[in-house]
Design a protein around this nucleic acid. Structure first.
Lengths: 161, 161
DNA sequence: CACAATTTAGTTGTGCACAATCAAATGCCG
DNA sequence: CGGCATTTGATTGTGCACAACTAAATTGTG
């Protein structure tokens, strides 16, 4: 296990692969489990995220949905339309501001929540992590995301030099 | 904070939103930083992963690439073709097994490695994590991925009942 | 050898992520 | 009021993830 400081350059590329690849793999693995579990509900993973926000906070304009989930309209517009096609939501253009579109739960959409209640437990069990570990991972990931978001702006500025 | 059973259920959904969202967000945040950093090299993040494997292990059949990166041919085929169009790799059908296609680095592809050496350090700095934290996170994510992959199979079997 | 099963790529189709751009409605300012 | 910037969605185009399917070559078995 001797870690000579000299094994730098090539190892950096290896190490890097492990880090970014781990996250990439974990993200896709998570996605895979959600895909299986959500199949019964007829939802994809991002669609489930949208429904969670709606169940929690009630009807919202697309703009607010995008802020909560950090998704832009290029992703949300077709996604919400698919939810509408599935009969889970309606879209209604606001009367006081004609630019704004509210996303509203239908009866069917609201009812789906009952069947979604079992999802978190199945996911939790799939991770093999207990509550404390999940909370810890959650905290780390949030810290990571904050740092990365800040860095993305900095790096973007750097390459504009 | 009385936790009636109804509130508990709602809390589970809220927790799920937080957890799956943090992983989703972290993954996209990472992706965002890589996008910025790799822009100079003309690579996307998954293309960078492919190049890392080739730099480390030399020419490989598409099959082996897919195993290392856990990507199927539906993702790899067009990706490798884009790398070929960029002049970084060539594709050569094997002589002893006509089904197999080897991906080979061109001179240009090999040369790109030099410019890629600075990437890991920039990414590392972007995370705001030190080496120990990264190693720790790496271990947790790998454990998570292993558990999730196993669970995906189990859950898939469960829903086939 | 003949034939079925397996292996390896490729293709097609659906859905998400994100950048760039457009269009309409609103609000502000002189 | 008239004109312009801002806000809000929608659209388009590129690229990735993955499922389902096809095609061709190889391997195994009777």
């Amino acid at each position: 296990m001797t870690a000579s400081p000299a094994e730098t350059e090539a190892d950096w590329l290896r190490l890097d692969r492990q880090i970014c690849f781990s996250l990439h793999a974990a993200s896709r693995a998570f996605n895979g489990v959600y895909r299986v579990v959500l199949k019964d509900l007829g939802l994809t993973y991002p669609q489930y995220l949208v429904m969670l926000v709606l169940w929690e906070q009630g009807d919202l304009p697309v703009k607010k949905l995008g802020e909560q989930l950090r998704l832009d309209s290029g992703t949300l517009s077709p996604l919400v339309k698919r939810l509408e096609a599935a009969g889970l939501v309606r879209r209604e253009r606001s009367v006081e501001d004609e630019r704004s579109v509210r996303v509203l739960l239908t009866g069917e959409g609201t009812a789906l929540r009952e069947r979604a209640l079992e999802v978190p437990r199945r996911i939790m069990r799939s991770t093999g992590f207990d509550l404390a570990e999940i909370a810890d991972l959650h905290a780390r990931l949030d810290r990571l995301t904050t740092a990365l978001d800040a860095a993305a702006a900095t790096e973007a500025a750097r390459s504009r030099d």
